[in-house]
Design a protein around this nucleic acid. Structure first.
Length: 275
DNA sequence: ATGGCTAATCGCATTAGA
């Protein structure tokens, strides 16, 4: 069974590359993040032609997550209990004041059971700066995620929680720790949030880099960062113990970051032995 | 050759990404 996670940075802008990638790599399950489109605008028909059924969550602007599967999609959860609402959204001007503003959680998580594995596609809040409300929201989001996944893990079912975590687990997971000294993605509370997730029974399946010593998954579009391998490992594949024990291989497909019109993230691909 | 941002939006400038 082949699973993958990929922040595509707009599924519409990336659709030709996504379809080519699916055709070439033939994954059974793909978790997508930053689809940046409403659920009803997701190109479901195009991926269905390649044999995939879809579970999609998107509210139209930023964010957006999806699961593609050719081994079934059952028991879809559009989000998890306790998802925090980002209050900063309330500061945006409202054009229509006739109705009270109802804030809903952003489209950052979707779960489904695919081929007997509980799969979550996750897109953690960025955090922006460590002194921002968005950073507080990020930590709250991780805390709620931990509770939700702990509940699911208690059932004993095989589980995968993969996606763009927006946290580099160690200093080895950023190209230059000094550059991130006062930034999000590397602060002790963010790394503790990852440790708290591992503490409830999740294992970090670290992929093999296809080049260089670091399995980076993200490179900024600017300043030739990819060319210079100025990257970060922030797309993570967390798995329950039994799934982690079935991992035959895991790698970063940095080929998908090359060429014209790539996402700024590369897919992480994980092959599992049969249960 | 993998290159110096990119995508979406009530757009021609702003916001967000990380």
């Amino acid at each position: 069974m082949r699973l993958a996670t990929w922040n595509v940075n707009s599924v519409k802008a990336r659709l030709p590359r996504l379809l080519t990638w699916l055709d070439e790599h033939e994954p059974d399950v793909v978790c997508l993040q930053e689809t940046k489109c409403r659920a009803d605008q997701f190109p479901a028909a195009e991926v269905e032609e390649l044999g995939y059924t879809t579970a999609v969550r998107g509210d139209g602007r930023w964010n957006g997550v999806a699961i593609l599967s050719r081994v079934g999609v059952e028991d879809v959860s559009t989000g998890f209990p306790g998802e925090p609402v980002y209050e900063g959204a309330a500061e945006e001007p409202q054009l229509e004041l006739t109705e009270p503003v109802v804030l809903t959680p952003e489209a950052r998580a979707i779960g489904a059971t695919c081929g007997g594995v509980r799969v979550w596609s996750l897109y953690a809040p960025n955090g922006r700066t460590p002194d921002s409300a968005h950073y507080v929201y990020k930590l709250e989001w991780f805390a709620a995620l931990r509770e939700a996944l702990a509940t699911e893990l208690a059932s004993g079912a095989p589980l995968v929680a993969c996606g763009d975590y927006n946290v580099a687990p160690t200093d080895d997971d950023v190209w230059d720790p000094a550059v991130f000294a006062h930034s999000t993605h590397v602060t002790p509370p963010e790394r503790q949030a990852l440790a708290d997730l591992r503490a409830v029974g999740l294992h970090d399946v670290v992929p093999t880099p296809m080049k260089g010593p670091h399995p980076f998954t993200y490179w900024d579009y600017r300043a030739g960062a990819f060319h210079k391998n100025m990257g970060m490992r922030i797309d993570l594949f967390y798995a329950s113990e039994d799934v982690a024990g079935r991992v035959r291989s895991a790698y970063v497909d940095r080929e998908a970051r090359k060429g014209k019109g790539p996402s700024d993230h590369a897919p992480v691909v994980v092959d599992l032995d049969p249960a």
